[in-house]
């Protein structure tokens, strides 16, 4: 087992190697487009589906739990919005993406490591970390915030859908009134900032675990599990820290 200090050192060195200006910008943009396309094609569907369902369920749960006549019905829409904007669409969504995208990145780079494709690049005098990892980090940081905003929209739509079910007196008009009640657009910025940090965590941590695989296919599998576990923990820690910095 490597000590955490050792891992931190290796990770920092790798990031140093990654964050240099690409020698060929044309190749960089080609890779970047590939990454964004792959991320969009892979994840948009799942983001939309999960967000609609969770938005629906949140609205139903809250309306079931608010039965007191003293609490106005628009509270349901208001609370649903706050949960989705503040926490679900950024943090929970990125935890899901860490599982999907993170394991993908770690196994892709890990496979390149054990089949000597990375060595082949180094032998040509190419900075493999810069070529492989930088487009992934930039691509995720550009596109995950887009996915998060998408998740907000579709989550809210799911909630509106639930309001038609007439549970405990929840009506679409009270729900929509609640959605607009005390709307603070800074919360969207807050979520986007969180998403940027999470995207960096997912891409860089998964790349680190993939890049440092030693051994064979089995170790690639282990690396991708480790990548998901580690980036999930870091996302949760970042969530606490960022919430403290940005909201209090």
């Amino acid at each position: 087992m490597k000590s955490s200090l050792h891992i931190l050192g290796e990770y920092t060195l790798l990031m140093g190697k990654t964050f240099t200006a690409p020698t060929r910008w044309g190749m960089f943009f080609r890779q970047l487009m590939r990454e964004i396309y792959k991320l969009g094609a892979d994840s948009l569907g799942i983001v939309v589906i999960i967000s609609i369902f969770i938005g629906t369920v949140i609205a139903i749960q809250i309306s079931l739990n608010i039965s007191s006549p003293l609490i106005p019905k628009f509270t349901i829409g208001y609370t649903t919005r706050e949960i989705i904007l503040l926490e679900f669409s950024s943090s929970i969504m990125c935890l899901i993406l860490a599982g999907k995208v993170g394991s993908n990145i770690a196994s892709e780079i890990g496979t390149m490591r054990v089949t000597e494709q990375i060595d082949a690049m180094e032998i040509m005098g190419v900075n493999s970390a810069n070529f492989l990892i930088l487009p992934k980090i930039v691509g995720l940081m550009l596109f995950i915030p887009v996915l998060v905003v998408f998740s907000m929209f579709t989550g809210i739509i799911g909630g509106i859908g639930a309001s038609y079910a007439d549970i405990n007196g929840m009506t679409p008009s009270s729900f929509i009134y609640g959605l607009q009640f005390y709307f603070n657009s800074y919360y969207i910025a807050y979520s986007v900032i969180k998403a940027l940090v999470y995207a960096f965590i997912i891409a860089s941590v998964a790349s680190y675990f993939g890049y440092n695989v030693k051994g064979g296919a089995l170790d690639v599998g282990k690396a991708s599990t480790n990548a998901v576990v580690m980036s999930s923990i870091l996302i949760l820690m970042a969530d606490v820290i960022l919430t403290h910095i940005l909201l209090t």
Partner: peptide, 22 residues
């Protein structure tokens, strides 16, 4: 390399062009 180490996300032509491109 012993296992060829071709980049599997690229075609044969892209593989051969890679060192030239970079």
């Amino acid at each position: 390399f012993q296992g060829s180490a071709l980049f599997d996300s690229m075609t044969v032509l892209e593989n051969v062009m890679f060192p030239l491109d970079m």
